[in-house]
């Protein structure tokens, strides 16, 4: 049963303790930009989970079977970002053909997933933290889940915020950041979690 325990531990760590947005500061641009409505937040979140998981898979394989054997580790940044860019392009084409309404809803944010630091970030972190193939895929998946969780929570809060009286200067991004700070404060409580 230790296998299940390890996966559970990884999930808790990736989603809560080391939350990509609130403790690692990754994925902030879409976090602040796309979290105004719950629907678009969910759609974006799903796309990001998919890209993060696939990116983790391919970048791990590239590191293991191309960069390490040929001692090309210094090409990691270039190789990874090109892989991610191609992946996003592919996802964009697939969504366009299979779910045109989703494609329309996500609009310009889909290609922007390429510059989402969370995707490149998780690819690099998988290597740094010595995950094997399965670990890398799962870490990508769970980190993406953590990102989506926080994104949807934020969207929910911001939808509520529309109805309250925010000072003029704080409307929009400023108040979003302050709310993110409060969420980060809450998530800070997970930091000592240990099994």
């Amino acid at each position: 049963m230790s296998f299940i325990t390890q996966i559970f531990t990884l999930a808790v760590f990736a989603i809560f303790v080391n939350n990509f947005v609130l403790s690692k500061f990754l994925g902030l641009c879409p976090y602040i930009g796309v979290s105004k409505k719950i629907d678009s937040a969910v759609g974006m979140g799903m796309a990001v989970i998919f890209v993060m998981t696939m990116a983790s898979t391919f970048t791990w394989l590239i590191q293991e079977y191309l960069l390490i054997p040929y001692e090309l580790e210094y090409l990691q940044t270039i190789a990874f970002i090109l892989t991610i860019a191609s992946l996003v392009q592919l996802v964009e084409m697939v969504i366009q053909k299979t779910a045109p309404s989703l494609y329309k809803a996500l609009g310009v944010f889909l290609p922007l997933i390429t510059t989402n630091c969370a995707v490149l970030g998780v690819s690099i972190l998988n290597i740094q933290e010595d995950f094997n193939f399965l670990g890398a895929i799962l870490n990508g998946l769970f980190s993406g889940l953590g990102f989506t969780l926080v994104l949807v929570l934020m969207a929910g809060l911001r939808e509520r915020l529309e109805k309250s009286e925010v000072p003029e200067a704080m409307k929009g991004m400023p108040i979003a950041f302050v709310i993110a700070g409060c969420m980060a404060l809450a998530f800070l409580g997970f930091s000592g979690l240990n099994f």
Partner: peptide, 8 residues
Amino acid sequence: EPNPLKNV
């Protein structure tokens, strides 16, 4: 105990 997710 081996960690099935890491290369340790």
